[in-house]
Design a protein around this nucleic acid. Structure first.
Length: 576
DNA sequence: GCCGTTTTCGGCCCGACTGTTTTCAGTCG
C-alpha cells in the first residue's frame, strides 16, 4: 500500500484551504499548508509513526500531530469535518480556479449563492455578477479563461498520480495465483503527461480469480462493468481503471494492442496488411489461411513485421514506425543513465528538507554528482541573501568530506527578469559551480519580449541551464509565448542546456518541444526540481518525457561523466 | 498553528501585478 503521507497531507491541505475560505487567521492556514508540504515530502512513512514521531517533522507541532494521528486512526479529523459541513465542496473548487482565490470564492457564495463551477459560469453568462464589488468585466473574462484552462486539463490526472495507482494495482493482481504476467498499458505505458484512464493487462488461463480480486481492491469505489475478459472500476480518486485478462500465449499481441497509441497501431496494421497479414490483440495472423504466426511477445510481433521493437514512449505515430523499419530508432535515455541531478531545493528557500537530508537522499540514488540550486534573491518571498548562499556553500563543502563518491555542486536557480537579466552580477555568479536560470513571473509578455528575454539569458556566460522553459503548470497556467526556433537556436549556439523538468505539473520542456529543440542540436538536462527528498524521483517523469522526445543519453549532459559534464560547463563560461 | 528565543510572545513570505478602485484588496510566485 502507498505511504500514508499523501493521504494525511491531502487532508491537511484541504483544511488549510477551508480555513483560508472561511477567513480564519491567515497564518494559521499557512501553518497547515506548510505542515501538509512537510508531511508529503517527509522521507519516512507517517503510517508507521506514533504521534511523538510525527511531531518531530519540521513545521508539525502538537496540534497538527494530533490531527495527523486522528487521520491515521479514523481517516479524517473532527475540525475538518466541521469545516466541510460549513463550506460546500464546490466553493473549494471555485477557489481553485486560476485568478480566483479563497476570498472571491467566499464572496461568490455569500453574495450570489454560487456554490460550484457550473453555477459560476451561469452567473457570469447571465450577468449576475454585475455590481458585485471587485468583479468587473476583466475579472469575468479571467474567470472564463481560468475555467477553460482547468477544463482543458479535464478529467485527466497527472502522470505520477496514475503511475502510483497503476503500480499498486499491478502489484496486487500479480500476487494472485494463476496470474502469469501483469503490467499497465495504454497512455500510461507510453508515458504521456496526463492520463485519462488506466489500462491494466494480465495474462492468465483462468480470468475469474483475477476479476474477483480486482473489484475487491481497497482502491475501488465503484464497479462500472464486470465481465470475463474486461472489468472496469472507478477508484476513490475518481480514476477509471480497466483490467483486461488475456490467455498467456497472446500476451505480446495484446500488450502491443492495448499500449497503442491508436495512430501507432493503425500504422503498424497497415504494414501487416501490405504483407498479407492481419494484426489484432490476439496475434499476428496470415490473412488468407488465418494461421497464427506470432503472439507471445511484442518483440516477436514487431520483428515478424520487419520492424525493430519500438519503445512504448515512441508509439505516437511521429515517424517511429518508419524509423523502426530502417532500424534507425534512437537508443533512448533511461533513468539508470542519469549520473546527477542539477536542479533541487532545500529548506533554505522553498524546499522542505535540510541540505544534509537532500544530499543523503541524492547519494542513496547513486549519483556521481549532485547540485543544490536554491532560489536566488529576486524571488523575494524566498528571502535568499548572498550571505546565506555562501554559508550554504561552506556547509556543502564540509558535507563533501562525507561523500567521497559524489561530487557536490553548489548551484543556484536564478530568476530571469523581464529584460533577460538574472539576480546576481557576473562576479557573484562566478562563485557557483552551476547555474540554472528560469522564468518565475511576467508570464504574459509578448512572444517577442519573451524570446528576447530568454535569448539574453542563454547568452549569459554564467547560465548553464534554462529551467522549465515555458513556465506552464498544467491546469493552472498556460506556457509563455515564445519563438521556439529562435530560443532553441540560441541555446544551441551558446552551449546552454535546456531542462526537461520532472515536476509532474510542469514536465517542461514537453515531449514535442524536446523533439523540436533537438533538431537545433540543443543539449538537455533531466532534472527533478525536487523540493523534498522524495521528489528526487521526479527524474522518472522527466525521463519518460525525454524519451517521448526521442532523447539519447548523449544529448543529456547529466548522463555524462563528471569530466565531460564539467567541460561542458567550462566551455560555456569561456565561449560566451 | 509553528517556532525560536533577546523563549512562553511575537513574528511568520514579501513584493509585484491586476483589476478594480479613486486608495486598495486579492492573487500569485
Amino acid at each position: 500500500m502507498a505511504r500514508a503521507n499523501g493521504r494525511v497531507a491531502a487532508l491537511l491541505h484541504e483544511y488549510a484551504e477551508l480555513l483560508a475560505i472561511v477567513g480564519s487567521d491567515a497564518f494559521k492556514a499557512r501553518a497547515y499548508e506548510k505542515a501538509a508540504r512537510a508531511v508529503a515530502g517527509h522521507h519516512e512513512d507517517v503510517g508507521g509513526m506514533d504521534e511523538a514521531a510525527i511531531r518531530s517533522i519540521p513545521n508539525v507541532g502538537k496540534s497538527i500531530a494530533g490531527k495527523a494521528a486522528e487521520i491515521l486512526r479514523d481517516g479524517t479529523f473532527q475540525g475538518l469535518e466541521d469545516l466541510r459541513a460549513e463550506v460546500p465542496e464546490g466553493v473549494r473548487q471555485l477557489a481553485a480556479i486560476p485568478t480566483l482565490g479563497p476570498k472571491k470564492a467566499l464572496m461568490l457564495y455569500r453574495e450570489r449563492g454560487v456554490s460550484d463551477v457550473e453555477g459560476l459560469l451561469d452567473a457570469v453568462n447571465t450577468g449576475k455578477l454585475r455590481g458585485l464589488r471587485g468583479f468587473g468585466p476583466k475579472t469575468e473574462q479571467n474567470i472564463l479563461a481560468g475555467v477553460s484552462l482547468m477544463r482543458r486539463a479535464g478529467e485527466r490526472v497527472p502522470l505520477n498520480v496514475a503511475l502510483k495507482v497503476a503500480e499498486e494495482i499491478v502489484a496486487a493482481i500479480s500476487e494472485i495465483p494463476g496470474c502469469e504476467r501483469c503490467t499497465y498499458a495504454g497512455s500510461l505505458r507510453r508515458g504521456r503527461e496526463t492520463i485519462g484512464d488506466i489500462d491494466i493487462l494480465a495474462a492468465a488461463s483462468d480470468s475469474t480469480p483475477l476479476m474477483e480480486r480486482f473489484v475487491d481492491l481497497p482502491q475501488v469505489a465503484e464497479v462500472i462493468a464486470h465481465g470475463d475478459t474486461k472489468t472496469s472500476v472507478r477508484t476513490y480518486a475518481g480514476l477509471q481503471v480497466d483490467l483486461r485478462v488475456v490467455p498467456p500465449e497472446c500476451w505480446g499481441a495484446a500488450l502491443q494492442y492495448f499500449t497503442g497509441s491508436k495512430a501507432h497501431n493503425v500504422r503498424v496494421r497497415e504494414i501487416a496488411v501490405r504483407q498479407g497479414l492481419k494484426l489484432s490483440e490476439y496475434g499476428l495472423f496470415d490473412a488468407e489461411s488465418g494461421a497464427l504466426l506470432v503472439a507471445d511477445t511484442e518483440r516477436a510481433v514487431y520483428e515478424r513485421l520487419g520492424l525493430a521493437w519500438i519503445p512504448p514512449t515512441l508509439r505516437e505515430d511521429w515517424g517511429e514506425v518508419a524509423a523502426a523499419a530502417k532500424d534507425e530508432l534512437p537508443t533512448l535515455v533511461e533513468v539508470k543513465d542519469l549520473r546527477g541531478d542539477l536542479h533541487s531545493h532545500t529548506d533554505l528557500t522553498d524546499g522542505v528538507a535540510t541540505l544534509e537530508d537532500m544530499v543523503a537522499a541524492a547519494a542513496a540514488r547513486g549519483y556521481e554528482y549532485y547540485a543544490v540550486t536554491d532560489h536566488a534573491p529576486d524571488l523575494t518571498m524566498q528571502r535568499m541573501t548572498l550571505d546565506k548562499a555562501r554559508e550554504q556553500r561552506e556547509r556543502l563543502r564540509e558535507l563533501q568530506q562525507r561523500y567521497p563518491d559524489m561530487r557536490l555542486l553548489h548551484g543556484s536557480e536564478l530568476n530571469i527578469a523581464a529584460d533577460g537579466s538574472v539576480d546576481w552580477p557576473e562576479e557573484i555568479l562566478a562563485e557557483f559551480d552551476v547555474c540554472v536560470a528560469s522564468v518565475h513571473h511576467q508570464f504574459r509578455l509578448s512572444a517577442a519580449e519573451q524570446t528576447r528575454r530568454l535569448i539574453r539569458a542563454c547568452e549569459n556566460p554564467r547560465v548553464h541551464v534554462i529551467g522549465h522553459l515555458t513556465g506552464r503548470r498544467m491546469g493552472r497556467r498556460d506556457p509563455i509565448d515564445l519563438d521556439f526556433d529562435a530560443v532553441f537556436a540560441a541555446a544551441a549556439r551558446t552551449g546552454t542546456a535546456l531542462e526537461v523538468n520532472g515536476g509532474p505539473q510542469r514536465l517542461d520542456l514537453k515531449d514535442e518541444h524536446v523533439r523540436w529543440a533537438r533538431r537545433h542540436g540543443v543539449r538537455f538536462t533531466i532534472d527533478s526540481d525536487a523540493h523534498s527528498t522524495t521528489q528526487l524521483e521526479y527524474v522518472r517523469y522527466a525521463t519518460l518525457t525525454a524519451q517521448r522526445g526521442g532523447l539519447t543519453s548523449d544529448e543529456v549532459i547529466n548522463t555524462w561523466s563528471y569530466q565531460r559534464f564539467s567541460e561542458f560547463l567550462e566551455r560555456k563560461r569561456s565561449a560566451s
